[in-house]
Design a protein around this nucleic acid. Structure first.
Lengths: 206, 206
DNA sequence: ACAATTTATTACCTATCGGTACAAAATTCA
DNA sequence: TGAATTTTGTACCGATAGGTAATAAATTGT
Protein backbone atom coordinates (compact mmCIF):
# COMPACT_ATOMS: atom_id res chain seq x y z
CA UNK A 1 0.00 0.00 0.00
CA UNK A 2 2.86 2.37 0.76
CA UNK A 3 4.64 4.03 -2.09
CA UNK A 4 7.96 4.18 -0.34
CA UNK A 5 8.49 0.41 -0.32
CA UNK A 6 10.35 -0.64 -3.44
CA UNK A 7 8.80 -3.52 -5.34
CA UNK A 8 11.24 -6.34 -6.00
CA UNK A 9 9.18 -7.89 -8.76
CA UNK A 10 7.93 -6.36 -11.99
CA UNK A 11 9.37 -3.61 -14.13
CA UNK A 12 11.53 -1.27 -12.05
CA UNK A 13 10.41 2.33 -11.67
CA UNK A 14 12.26 4.52 -14.10
CA UNK A 15 12.43 7.66 -11.99
CA UNK A 16 13.45 8.78 -8.49
CA UNK A 17 10.22 9.07 -6.55
CA UNK A 18 11.66 11.44 -3.93
CA UNK A 19 13.14 13.70 -6.57
CA UNK A 20 9.85 13.73 -8.46
CA UNK A 21 8.01 14.70 -5.29
CA UNK A 22 10.45 17.55 -4.77
CA UNK A 23 9.74 18.80 -8.29
CA UNK A 24 6.01 18.59 -7.61
CA UNK A 25 6.48 20.64 -4.45
CA UNK A 26 8.29 23.29 -6.45
CA UNK A 27 5.40 23.63 -8.88
CA UNK A 28 2.74 23.76 -6.15
CA UNK A 29 4.93 26.24 -4.29
CA UNK A 30 5.02 28.51 -7.32
CA UNK A 31 1.45 28.20 -8.57
CA UNK A 32 -0.63 26.98 -5.65
CA UNK A 33 -2.86 23.93 -5.77
CA UNK A 34 -5.51 24.98 -8.26
CA UNK A 35 -3.07 27.03 -10.27
CA UNK A 36 -1.09 23.88 -11.02
CA UNK A 37 -2.24 21.56 -13.80
CA UNK A 38 -1.35 17.91 -14.21
CA UNK A 39 0.50 18.73 -17.40
CA UNK A 40 2.73 21.19 -15.54
CA UNK A 41 3.31 18.60 -12.86
CA UNK A 42 4.19 15.73 -15.17
CA UNK A 43 6.49 17.95 -17.21
CA UNK A 44 8.32 19.20 -14.12
CA UNK A 45 8.53 15.72 -12.65
CA UNK A 46 9.70 14.20 -15.93
CA UNK A 47 7.05 11.48 -15.92
CA UNK A 48 3.74 10.72 -17.63
CA UNK A 49 0.35 10.91 -16.01
CA UNK A 50 -0.20 7.17 -15.39
CA UNK A 51 3.16 7.00 -13.61
CA UNK A 52 2.13 9.91 -11.43
CA UNK A 53 -1.15 8.30 -10.48
CA UNK A 54 0.48 4.93 -9.85
CA UNK A 55 3.09 6.47 -7.58
CA UNK A 56 1.13 9.18 -5.75
CA UNK A 57 -2.60 8.39 -6.05
CA UNK A 58 -4.03 11.58 -7.48
CA UNK A 59 -3.43 15.31 -7.57
CA UNK A 60 -4.78 15.88 -4.08
CA UNK A 61 -2.71 13.13 -2.48
CA UNK A 62 0.35 14.30 -4.38
CA UNK A 63 -0.20 17.77 -2.96
CA UNK A 64 -0.45 16.48 0.59
CA UNK A 65 2.73 14.44 0.18
CA UNK A 66 4.50 17.49 -1.23
CA UNK A 67 3.35 19.63 1.69
CA UNK A 68 4.48 16.93 4.10
CA UNK A 69 7.89 17.07 2.50
CA UNK A 70 7.90 20.85 2.88
CA UNK A 71 6.86 20.92 6.52
CA UNK A 72 9.20 18.19 7.67
CA UNK A 73 12.34 19.95 6.56
CA UNK A 74 14.81 20.17 9.42
CA UNK A 75 15.80 23.74 8.60
CA UNK A 76 12.26 25.04 8.93
CA UNK A 77 11.74 28.55 10.17
CA UNK A 78 10.08 27.47 13.40
CA UNK A 79 12.57 24.77 14.28
CA UNK A 80 15.46 27.20 14.00
CA UNK A 81 13.89 30.18 15.75
CA UNK A 82 12.46 28.11 18.61
CA UNK A 83 15.95 27.11 19.66
CA UNK A 84 16.55 30.55 21.13
CA UNK A 85 16.26 30.87 24.87
CA UNK A 86 14.83 34.37 25.09
CA UNK A 87 11.47 35.11 23.49
CA UNK A 88 12.90 38.34 22.06
CA UNK A 89 15.35 36.31 20.03
CA UNK A 90 12.56 33.96 18.98
CA UNK A 91 10.51 36.88 17.64
CA UNK A 92 13.49 38.44 15.91
CA UNK A 93 14.53 35.07 14.50
CA UNK A 94 11.07 34.29 13.17
CA UNK A 95 10.62 37.61 11.41
CA UNK A 96 14.12 37.97 10.01
CA UNK A 97 14.15 34.29 9.12
CA UNK A 98 10.87 34.62 7.25
CA UNK A 99 12.14 37.63 5.31
CA UNK A 100 15.29 35.73 4.40
CA UNK A 101 13.80 32.33 3.61
CA UNK A 102 10.82 33.68 1.69
CA UNK A 103 13.13 35.51 -0.69
CA UNK A 104 15.72 32.73 -1.00
CA UNK A 105 16.06 32.30 -4.74
CA UNK A 106 17.13 28.64 -4.52
CA UNK A 107 13.42 27.80 -4.40
CA UNK A 108 10.11 29.54 -5.18
CA UNK A 109 9.40 32.75 -3.26
CA UNK A 110 7.22 32.91 -0.19
CA UNK A 111 5.94 30.16 2.07
CA UNK A 112 4.67 27.06 0.27
CA UNK A 113 1.91 26.52 2.79
CA UNK A 114 0.68 30.08 2.63
CA UNK A 115 0.96 30.33 -1.14
CA UNK A 116 -0.99 27.11 -1.64
CA UNK A 117 -3.99 28.26 0.34
CA UNK A 118 -4.26 31.37 -1.75
CA UNK A 119 -5.32 30.07 -5.10
CA UNK A 120 -8.02 27.89 -3.65
CA UNK A 121 -11.60 28.55 -4.68
CA UNK A 122 -14.66 26.92 -3.19
CA UNK A 123 -14.02 23.97 -5.48
CA UNK A 124 -11.22 22.21 -3.60
CA UNK A 125 -12.60 22.64 -0.14
CA UNK A 126 -10.73 19.69 1.37
CA UNK A 127 -7.42 21.19 0.32
CA UNK A 128 -8.32 24.50 1.90
CA UNK A 129 -9.43 22.91 5.15
CA UNK A 130 -6.35 20.73 5.42
CA UNK A 131 -3.98 23.60 4.82
CA UNK A 132 -5.89 25.78 7.27
CA UNK A 133 -5.60 23.05 9.90
CA UNK A 134 -1.86 22.88 9.39
CA UNK A 135 -1.51 26.63 9.64
CA UNK A 136 -3.57 26.52 12.83
CA UNK A 137 -1.13 24.00 14.26
CA UNK A 138 1.77 26.31 13.54
CA UNK A 139 -0.05 29.19 15.15
CA UNK A 140 -0.63 27.06 18.21
CA UNK A 141 3.09 26.50 18.49
CA UNK A 142 3.49 30.26 18.58
CA UNK A 143 0.78 30.66 21.21
CA UNK A 144 2.39 27.99 23.38
CA UNK A 145 5.82 29.57 23.13
CA UNK A 146 4.51 33.02 23.99
CA UNK A 147 2.38 31.67 26.85
CA UNK A 148 5.51 30.08 28.25
CA UNK A 149 7.29 33.42 27.94
CA UNK A 150 4.45 35.10 29.77
CA UNK A 151 4.64 32.56 32.57
CA UNK A 152 8.36 33.07 32.94
CA UNK A 153 7.80 36.82 33.16
CA UNK A 154 9.41 37.75 29.87
CA UNK A 155 6.33 39.45 28.45
CA UNK A 156 4.72 42.69 29.52
CA UNK A 157 1.53 42.43 31.55
CA UNK A 158 -0.77 43.80 28.85
CA UNK A 159 0.57 41.45 26.20
CA UNK A 160 -1.73 38.56 25.32
CA UNK A 161 0.12 35.54 23.87
CA UNK A 162 -2.68 34.74 21.43
CA UNK A 163 -2.78 38.30 20.08
CA UNK A 164 0.98 38.33 19.72
CA UNK A 165 0.79 35.00 17.88
CA UNK A 166 -1.91 36.38 15.59
CA UNK A 167 0.19 39.41 14.82
CA UNK A 168 3.16 37.22 13.96
CA UNK A 169 0.97 35.08 11.72
CA UNK A 170 -0.36 38.19 10.02
CA UNK A 171 3.18 39.35 9.34
CA UNK A 172 4.21 35.94 7.99
CA UNK A 173 1.34 35.94 5.55
CA UNK A 174 2.07 39.47 4.46
CA UNK A 175 5.77 38.75 4.04
CA UNK A 176 4.99 35.63 2.05
CA UNK A 177 2.73 37.55 -0.30
CA UNK A 178 5.27 40.31 -0.75
CA UNK A 179 7.96 37.76 -1.53
CA UNK A 180 5.73 35.98 -4.02
CA UNK A 181 5.09 39.29 -5.72
CA UNK A 182 8.78 39.89 -6.18
CA UNK A 183 9.98 41.86 -3.15
CA UNK A 184 13.75 41.74 -2.60
CA UNK A 185 15.60 40.30 0.38
CA UNK A 186 16.70 43.74 1.58
CA UNK A 187 13.23 45.16 1.30
CA UNK A 188 11.69 42.36 3.34
CA UNK A 189 14.47 42.29 5.90
CA UNK A 190 13.99 46.00 6.55
CA UNK A 191 10.28 45.41 7.01
CA UNK A 192 10.93 42.47 9.31
CA UNK A 193 13.47 44.42 11.34
CA UNK A 194 11.11 47.33 11.84
CA UNK A 195 8.25 44.99 12.72
CA UNK A 196 10.43 43.14 15.23
CA UNK A 197 11.57 46.37 16.81
CA UNK A 198 8.01 47.59 17.21
CA UNK A 199 6.69 44.32 18.53
CA UNK A 200 9.50 43.92 21.05
CA UNK A 201 8.98 47.37 22.53
CA UNK A 202 5.31 46.71 23.22
CA UNK A 203 5.44 43.08 24.24
CA UNK A 204 8.76 42.15 25.84
CA UNK A 205 10.08 43.50 29.13
CA UNK A 206 13.27 45.43 28.81
CA UNK B 1 -18.52 51.92 -27.89
CA UNK B 2 -19.15 52.70 -24.25
CA UNK B 3 -21.36 50.43 -22.24
CA UNK B 4 -22.67 53.16 -19.99
CA UNK B 5 -24.53 55.00 -22.75
CA UNK B 6 -28.09 53.72 -22.94
CA UNK B 7 -29.21 52.81 -26.43
CA UNK B 8 -32.44 54.55 -27.43
CA UNK B 9 -33.17 52.19 -30.29
CA UNK B 10 -33.49 48.42 -30.27
CA UNK B 11 -34.66 46.08 -27.58
CA UNK B 12 -34.06 47.57 -24.13
CA UNK B 13 -31.63 45.82 -21.81
CA UNK B 14 -33.51 43.63 -19.39
CA UNK B 15 -31.18 44.00 -16.41
CA UNK B 16 -29.48 46.74 -14.39
CA UNK B 17 -25.93 46.90 -15.66
CA UNK B 18 -24.55 48.58 -12.53
CA UNK B 19 -26.23 46.08 -10.25
CA UNK B 20 -24.91 43.21 -12.38
CA UNK B 21 -21.40 44.62 -12.12
CA UNK B 22 -21.74 44.80 -8.36
CA UNK B 23 -22.74 41.13 -8.27
CA UNK B 24 -19.75 40.28 -10.43
CA UNK B 25 -17.48 42.15 -8.02
CA UNK B 26 -18.87 40.12 -5.16
CA UNK B 27 -18.02 36.84 -6.86
CA UNK B 28 -14.49 37.93 -7.83
CA UNK B 29 -14.04 39.24 -4.30
CA UNK B 30 -14.94 35.86 -2.85
CA UNK B 31 -13.18 33.55 -5.30
CA UNK B 32 -10.51 35.60 -7.01
CA UNK B 33 -10.15 35.91 -10.76
CA UNK B 34 -9.22 32.40 -11.77
CA UNK B 35 -11.36 30.85 -9.06
CA UNK B 36 -14.45 32.39 -10.62
CA UNK B 37 -16.11 30.68 -13.58
CA UNK B 38 -18.41 32.26 -16.11
CA UNK B 39 -21.25 30.08 -14.90
CA UNK B 40 -20.84 31.43 -11.37
CA UNK B 41 -20.76 34.94 -12.75
CA UNK B 42 -23.83 34.65 -14.94
CA UNK B 43 -25.78 32.97 -12.17
CA UNK B 44 -24.87 35.67 -9.64
CA UNK B 45 -25.56 38.44 -12.15
CA UNK B 46 -28.85 36.91 -13.24
CA UNK B 47 -27.98 37.03 -16.94
CA UNK B 48 -26.86 34.64 -19.67
CA UNK B 49 -23.40 34.50 -21.16
CA UNK B 50 -24.08 36.38 -24.42
CA UNK B 51 -25.60 39.24 -22.40
CA UNK B 52 -22.50 39.35 -20.26
CA UNK B 53 -20.21 39.46 -23.27
CA UNK B 54 -22.34 42.11 -25.00
CA UNK B 55 -22.36 44.33 -21.93
CA UNK B 56 -18.84 43.85 -20.55
CA UNK B 57 -16.62 42.44 -23.30
CA UNK B 58 -15.15 39.32 -21.73
CA UNK B 59 -14.15 37.90 -18.35
CA UNK B 60 -10.97 39.95 -18.13
CA UNK B 61 -12.66 43.26 -18.97
CA UNK B 62 -15.49 42.44 -16.59
CA UNK B 63 -12.92 41.89 -13.86
CA UNK B 64 -11.24 45.21 -14.51
CA UNK B 65 -14.59 47.03 -14.46
CA UNK B 66 -15.47 45.30 -11.20
CA UNK B 67 -12.14 46.29 -9.67
CA UNK B 68 -12.65 49.85 -10.85
CA UNK B 69 -15.97 49.85 -9.08
CA UNK B 70 -14.27 48.55 -5.95
CA UNK B 71 -11.45 51.05 -5.93
CA UNK B 72 -13.58 54.09 -6.66
CA UNK B 73 -15.80 53.69 -3.64
CA UNK B 74 -15.88 56.92 -1.66
CA UNK B 75 -15.66 55.11 1.68
CA UNK B 76 -12.39 53.40 0.81
CA UNK B 77 -9.92 52.71 3.57
CA UNK B 78 -7.34 55.13 2.24
CA UNK B 79 -9.74 57.97 1.57
CA UNK B 80 -11.02 57.86 5.12
CA UNK B 81 -7.71 57.42 6.94
CA UNK B 82 -5.90 60.05 4.88
CA UNK B 83 -8.24 62.72 6.17
CA UNK B 84 -6.49 62.69 9.53
CA UNK B 85 -4.06 65.50 10.20
CA UNK B 86 -1.52 63.62 12.29
CA UNK B 87 0.33 60.69 10.78
CA UNK B 88 -0.23 58.72 13.97
CA UNK B 89 -3.96 58.89 13.39
CA UNK B 90 -3.45 57.91 9.77
CA UNK B 91 -1.55 54.79 10.80
CA UNK B 92 -4.08 53.90 13.47
CA UNK B 93 -6.95 54.58 11.10
CA UNK B 94 -5.49 52.47 8.33
CA UNK B 95 -4.83 49.46 10.52
CA UNK B 96 -8.01 49.55 12.56
CA UNK B 97 -10.00 50.40 9.44
CA UNK B 98 -8.52 47.44 7.59
CA UNK B 99 -9.35 45.09 10.46
CA UNK B 100 -12.91 46.40 10.54
CA UNK B 101 -13.61 46.60 6.81
CA UNK B 102 -11.98 43.28 5.95
CA UNK B 103 -14.29 41.49 8.39
CA UNK B 104 -17.44 43.44 7.52
CA UNK B 105 -19.98 40.73 6.81
CA UNK B 106 -22.07 42.89 4.46
CA UNK B 107 -19.63 41.87 1.72
CA UNK B 108 -16.97 39.19 1.16
CA UNK B 109 -14.12 39.09 3.66
CA UNK B 110 -10.73 40.65 3.04
CA UNK B 111 -9.62 43.15 0.41
CA UNK B 112 -10.95 42.50 -3.09
CA UNK B 113 -7.74 43.69 -4.69
CA UNK B 114 -5.51 41.54 -2.50
CA UNK B 115 -7.75 38.48 -2.72
CA UNK B 116 -7.90 38.67 -6.50
CA UNK B 117 -4.15 38.58 -6.96
CA UNK B 118 -3.89 35.47 -4.89
CA UNK B 119 -5.57 32.87 -7.03
CA UNK B 120 -3.67 33.90 -10.10
CA UNK B 121 -1.37 31.37 -11.73
CA UNK B 122 1.05 32.08 -14.53
CA UNK B 123 -1.85 31.72 -16.95
CA UNK B 124 -3.53 35.09 -16.50
CA UNK B 125 -0.39 37.17 -16.40
CA UNK B 126 -2.07 40.39 -17.54
CA UNK B 127 -4.48 40.21 -14.61
CA UNK B 128 -1.61 39.74 -12.19
CA UNK B 129 0.39 42.61 -13.63
CA UNK B 130 -2.55 44.99 -13.64
CA UNK B 131 -3.47 44.21 -10.06
CA UNK B 132 0.16 44.52 -8.99
CA UNK B 133 0.35 47.94 -10.65
CA UNK B 134 -2.73 49.10 -8.78
CA UNK B 135 -1.33 47.84 -5.49
CA UNK B 136 1.90 49.65 -6.25
CA UNK B 137 -0.06 52.86 -6.74
CA UNK B 138 -1.65 52.46 -3.34
CA UNK B 139 1.71 51.81 -1.76
CA UNK B 140 3.01 54.97 -3.36
CA UNK B 141 0.23 56.92 -1.70
CA UNK B 142 1.49 55.57 1.61
CA UNK B 143 5.08 56.45 0.82
CA UNK B 144 4.08 59.99 -0.14
CA UNK B 145 2.05 60.49 3.01
CA UNK B 146 4.85 59.20 5.24
CA UNK B 147 7.45 61.25 3.40
CA UNK B 148 5.34 64.31 4.05
CA UNK B 149 5.19 63.34 7.73
CA UNK B 150 8.94 62.99 7.79
CA UNK B 151 9.37 66.44 6.24
CA UNK B 152 7.09 68.00 8.79
CA UNK B 153 9.09 66.39 11.57
CA UNK B 154 6.45 63.93 12.74
CA UNK B 155 8.57 60.84 12.19
CA UNK B 156 11.63 59.71 14.09
CA UNK B 157 14.99 60.21 12.41
CA UNK B 158 15.67 56.52 11.81
CA UNK B 159 12.27 55.89 10.26
CA UNK B 160 12.32 55.49 6.48
CA UNK B 161 8.98 56.32 4.83
CA UNK B 162 9.34 53.55 2.26
CA UNK B 163 10.06 50.93 4.90
CA UNK B 164 7.12 52.10 6.96
CA UNK B 165 4.91 51.91 3.86
CA UNK B 166 6.15 48.41 3.13
CA UNK B 167 5.39 47.34 6.67
CA UNK B 168 1.88 48.74 6.42
CA UNK B 169 1.36 46.94 3.10
CA UNK B 170 2.61 43.72 4.64
CA UNK B 171 0.11 44.09 7.46
CA UNK B 172 -2.74 44.83 5.06
CA UNK B 173 -2.02 41.71 3.08
CA UNK B 174 -1.77 39.62 6.22
CA UNK B 175 -4.98 41.06 7.63
CA UNK B 176 -6.77 40.44 4.34
CA UNK B 177 -5.69 36.83 4.29
CA UNK B 178 -6.68 36.30 7.90
CA UNK B 179 -10.11 37.81 7.21
CA UNK B 180 -10.58 35.64 4.14
CA UNK B 181 -9.75 32.60 6.22
CA UNK B 182 -12.46 33.45 8.70
CA UNK B 183 -10.85 35.54 11.43
CA UNK B 184 -13.32 37.53 13.54
CA UNK B 185 -13.57 41.31 13.86
CA UNK B 186 -12.33 41.27 17.44
CA UNK B 187 -9.40 39.06 16.62
CA UNK B 188 -8.26 41.29 13.78
CA UNK B 189 -8.86 44.51 15.67
CA UNK B 190 -6.68 43.28 18.51
CA UNK B 191 -3.95 42.44 16.03
CA UNK B 192 -4.31 45.82 14.33
CA UNK B 193 -4.24 47.65 17.65
CA UNK B 194 -1.09 45.89 18.78
CA UNK B 195 0.56 46.46 15.42
CA UNK B 196 -0.36 50.15 15.49
CA UNK B 197 0.98 50.52 19.01
CA UNK B 198 4.27 48.92 18.07
CA UNK B 199 4.67 50.85 14.86
CA UNK B 200 3.89 54.19 16.49
CA UNK B 201 6.47 53.70 19.23
CA UNK B 202 9.25 53.11 16.74
CA UNK B 203 8.29 55.54 14.00
CA UNK B 204 6.41 58.56 15.34
CA UNK B 205 7.85 61.19 17.66
CA UNK B 206 6.10 61.35 21.01
C1' DA C 1 -47.06 48.35 -41.19
C1' DC C 2 -42.31 47.68 -41.88
C1' DA C 3 -37.35 48.25 -41.91
C1' DA C 4 -33.53 49.01 -38.66
C1' DT C 5 -31.44 48.09 -34.46
C1' DT C 6 -30.42 46.10 -30.14
C1' DT C 7 -31.01 42.41 -26.59
C1' DA C 8 -32.09 37.56 -25.08
C1' DT C 9 -32.04 32.52 -25.58
C1' DT C 10 -30.50 28.26 -27.14
C1' DA C 11 -27.22 25.53 -28.62
C1' DC C 12 -22.89 24.93 -29.87
C1' DC C 13 -17.48 25.57 -30.52
C1' DT C 14 -12.52 24.40 -29.20
C1' DA C 15 -9.27 23.79 -25.45
C1' DT C 16 -8.11 22.04 -21.28
C1' DC C 17 -9.16 20.02 -16.90
C1' DG C 18 -8.37 15.68 -13.77
C1' DG C 19 -8.33 10.94 -14.46
C1' DT C 20 -8.02 6.15 -16.78
C1' DA C 21 -8.11 1.71 -20.17
C1' DC C 22 -5.15 -0.82 -22.55
C1' DA C 23 -1.38 -2.94 -24.33
C1' DA C 24 3.78 -2.93 -24.84
C1' DA C 25 8.06 -3.22 -22.17
C1' DA C 26 10.93 -4.70 -18.37
C1' DT C 27 11.84 -7.12 -14.53
C1' DT C 28 11.64 -11.54 -10.84
C1' DC C 29 10.33 -16.09 -9.85
C1' DA C 30 9.71 -20.80 -11.15
C1' DT D 1 11.92 -20.43 -21.26
C1' DG D 2 7.88 -19.27 -19.73
C1' DA D 3 4.27 -17.14 -16.06
C1' DA D 4 3.54 -13.44 -12.98
C1' DT D 5 4.03 -8.75 -11.91
C1' DT D 6 4.83 -3.94 -12.28
C1' DT D 7 5.83 0.32 -14.94
C1' DT D 8 5.50 2.89 -19.20
C1' DG D 9 3.50 5.27 -23.24
C1' DT D 10 -0.42 6.27 -26.09
C1' DA D 11 -4.66 7.39 -26.65
C1' DC D 12 -8.73 8.29 -24.76
C1' DC D 13 -12.84 9.57 -21.24
C1' DG D 14 -16.56 12.88 -19.41
C1' DA D 15 -16.79 17.43 -17.43
C1' DT D 16 -15.99 22.04 -17.56
C1' DA D 17 -13.46 26.12 -19.00
C1' DG D 18 -14.04 30.65 -21.83
C1' DG D 19 -16.30 32.20 -25.79
C1' DT D 20 -19.59 32.54 -29.99
C1' DA D 21 -23.11 31.73 -34.13
C1' DA D 22 -27.68 32.01 -35.12
C1' DT D 23 -32.14 33.19 -34.36
C1' DA D 24 -36.14 34.93 -31.79
C1' DA D 25 -37.99 38.91 -29.28
C1' DA D 26 -38.57 43.75 -28.24
C1' DT D 27 -38.04 48.31 -29.12
C1' DT D 28 -37.62 53.12 -32.26
C1' DG D 29 -37.93 55.60 -36.57
C1' DT D 30 -40.46 56.23 -40.83
Amino acid sequence: MTTTKAACVGRPRGFDIDLALEQALNVFWRNGYEGTSLNELTEAMGIKKPSLYAAFGNKEQLFFKAIDLYENRPDSLFNIAFQHEHVADVIRGLLLGAATQFTDCSHPQGCALINSTLSCSEASESIKQTVLARKAKHKQRLVDRFAQAKNSGELQEGCEPVVLANLMTTLFQGLSMQASEGASVDELQQVAAMAAEGILTVSVKR
